[in-house]
Simulated scan of single mutants.
Amino acid sequence: MALLLNIETATKNCSVSLAIDGKTIACKEIAEQNFSHAEKLHVFVDELLKENNLNYKDLNGVAVGQGPGSYTGLRIGVSSAKGFCYALGIPMIAIDTLEVLARKITIAEGLIIPMIDARRMEVYSAIFEIDYTKTRNVEAVIIDANSFSEIGKKIHLVGDGIAKFKEVLTDEKFIYHDDVVYPSANEMSYLSFEKFKKSDFVDVAYFEPFYLKDFMISK
């Protein structure tokens, strides 16, 4: 039996779950306008373990959303995961945040394009088939009326980056899933267990989040 802690903090959603053999047994999350990850993450972990009569020493590994996404959010999530893994002597697993977001919906046809807001008309995105196979790697792209014009299939859009494109991407092939806004640790459970079984771990000391773009400081 593998008990894994999953942490996803790449967006405004501070999300934590516990999973046994790939199935979520409990999840806590909160999405606030002002990022509250530093205040909430460790509280959520403590509460999840206590509510399920578990201890830190029961954990077999920690998975973290690797990004792309918020610089601050990713730093908090990865730093916390590293701390748990180092202190407990357990492996660390990195999960693609965009795949986590894509897995929040199930479709019968077409493609899934998760979009994480990168400000203005730019988003972090990738393209996934109905079985979540990635067919275009993660990119930071500027969206305009011609975006995805080469795709003849239905396109399912999810994430906090899609709302601003409703007047831009108006073709009937675009399906907006407005209720799917943020990635969640709930959808990490299956992915982290699959990697755990394969011993697909990252180096706790040297792993860095996938920022995709350089951190920019503005006044």
Score class of each variant (00 low, 15 high):
61 G>L: 09
79 S>Y: 07
152 G>H: 04
214 D>N: 15
60 N>T: 09
145 A>C: 02
28 K>P: 00
32 E>Q: 12
164 K>R: 14
23 K>G: 00
15 S>D: 04
189 S>M: 04
171 D>P: 00
89 G>Q: 10
2 A>M: 15
140 A>Q: 07
183 P>F: 10
117 D>C: 15
14 C>K: 04
94 A>Q: 10
41 L>F: 14
209 P>F: 03
15 S>Q: 05
202 V>K: 13
201 F>R: 09
212 L>C: 10
133 T>V: 06
203 D>V: 09
32 E>I: 01
121 M>K: 14
214 D>L: 12
97 T>V: 12
160 D>Q: 08
136 R>W: 01
75 R>C: 08
90 I>Y: 02
48 L>D: 12
2 A>I: 11
126 A>Y: 03
41 L>P: 04
29 E>W: 01
190 Y>C: 08
84 F>P: 06
48 L>M: 07
139 E>Y: 09
178 D>E: 15
147 S>Q: 03
188 M>F: 01
55 N>L: 09
16 V>D: 06
25 I>S: 05
137 N>A: 14
134 K>C: 13
110 G>Q: 06
24 T>N: 05
57 K>T: 14
33 Q>M: 12
19 A>V: 01
20 I>K: 12
55 N>W: 00
149 S>G: 00
42 H>G: 03
124 Y>D: 08
54 L>H: 08
103 R>C: 05
154 K>L: 15
131 D>N: 15
83 G>Y: 04
74 L>G: 15
100 V>R: 01
79 S>Q: 07
174 F>V: 10
7 I>V: 10
133 T>A: 10
157 L>D: 11
104 K>G: 13
197 K>C: 15
200 D>K: 10
6 N>Y: 01
49 L>N: 06
176 Y>D: 09
119 R>H: 12
101 L>K: 07
1 M>P: 12
132 Y>C: 02
103 R>W: 04
144 D>V: 00
23 K>Q: 13
92 M>P: 11
195 K>Y: 05
98 L>H: 06
32 E>R: 11
58 D>W: 00
132 Y>P: 01
25 I>G: 03
120 R>E: 06
138 V>Y: 02
161 G>Q: 08
181 V>W: 00
5 L>Q: 09
173 K>F: 07
213 K>A: 10
80 S>R: 01
217 I>T: 14
35 F>M: 13
106 T>M: 08
200 D>I: 09
98 L>N: 06
199 S>C: 10
10 A>H: 06
77 G>H: 06
20 I>D: 03
71 Y>Q: 10
185 A>G: 02
118 A>H: 03
206 Y>E: 11
180 V>M: 02
107 I>T: 04
211 Y>T: 13
54 L>K: 12
19 A>W: 01
68 P>V: 12
